[in-house]
Design a protein around this nucleic acid. Sequence first.
DNA 1: TTATAAAATGACCGGGTGGTCATTTAAATA
DNA 2: TATTTAAATGACCACCCGGTCATTTTATAA
Lengths: 213, 213
Amino acid sequence: MNLTNTKKFDHLPDEKQQIIIDASVAEFADNGFKNASVNKIVNNAGIAKGSLFNYFKSKSLLFEYVYTLALKEVKAYLARVRDESNQDEFFTRLSKIIHAGINFIDKHPLLAKIYFRLLNSDDSPRGKKIIKELHTEAVDYLKQFIMEGIERKELSDKLNISTTAFMLEAILNRILQTYYLDLFDPESDIDKENKEWINSIVGVLKNGLSGKP
Amino acid sequence: MNLTNTKKFDHLPDEKQQIIIDASVAEFADNGFKNASVNKIVNNAGIAKGSLFNYFKSKSLLFEYVYTLALKEVKAYLARVRDESNQDEFFTRLSKIIHAGINFIDKHPLLAKIYFRLLNSDDSPRGKKIIKELHTEAVDYLKQFIMEGIERKELSDKLNISTTAFMLEAILNRILQTYYLDLFDPESDIDKENKEWINSIVGVLKNGLSGKP
DNA sequence: TTATAAAATGACCGGGTGGTCATTTAAATA
DNA sequence: TATTTAAATGACCACCCGGTCATTTTATAA
């Protein structure tokens, strides 16, 4: 018994699937889960409400579907970036990962919107669980990254890996959130190539606040 | 012409005011702005709906009132902590500020809920504006703090103050959010005195990732 | 072409929403 | 106490919600 059975939806023509997904993403991005309107989704997708509830048994399951799809995309993208920058030095690599995140937001602003909404809103099914999942995934991703840095002696071997991953995650997340907020703020025109800003952050991370070296 | 005129409400007996505020805080904390129910607020406060709309012209203005009140409380508390620890060395002081934040969440869990909801949910009046305001306030608070550290030669004078404040804000915020999530997670029993954890973070901040000193 | 099965449809349902206002109750004034 | 003023009330409004299902349209099989 699979509650998230989407056999019906999977057999739809790809084009129609995409229209429905796009309408759902847009609506969830704009309004979160509870305030998203199924009526608006079906209107924008140009299908009948009955059809949508034939494909997905409930609004919750539709959200799960869209959310899972989006998460898969993000993870694949970030894993690729990490692997492709395999040869670079740690802090160069870190910088590349940050820029990759910014790049993803540029390409998928609506997915970013859903993500940041999810992060603290708690209005979606399994809300808190999802938040913890995301946090854990990101930290695990960074832990591996940090361990590689230590092995190559580019990072101090006295670092507490968990602590460091936690900090990196916090900062990365904040950078992306700031970029995201500016992106949707009509008053602000952002510097798409603000390498200076990011380099500055990476620099402080490298040498610490006391600046002994 | 003051749209947020609350003369009527202000002239209520303090006790009644508090009952209404408490009911509003609880409802907004549990459901965010849009999904909060005015009906539930008046039921829990034991007053008629007409009365509430007599005190506050709309749900939005009620929210503004509650939000402003809460923000004032947080700011006063944090300013007090910063000033009281005036004599301490920078990283001791930083640690104290973090613990003060945790302490505030313990004492005012519902206000914390509203705050973290606000932070990324965008479902409240002036949502995006409020988020930016909060971020700016926090960064300004930390900038002053960092500048004092530099003046006393406890921090490197080569630090970019904006960058450093940005990073500190990100980490502080993440620490508090993690604590907050654990607090409302029945499965997790948190270590209320996890000084080790916080000291570890402060240590990494102090010396940086490359660990040269 | 006709019979059968599958997919699409949208009117309809019970329920909740923020907000209003005529009416009742209480307080203040004379 | 009688009269005026202000505060409290809750039934009511128009609207929107997620979800259902009898009916119609389309695709498939005979």
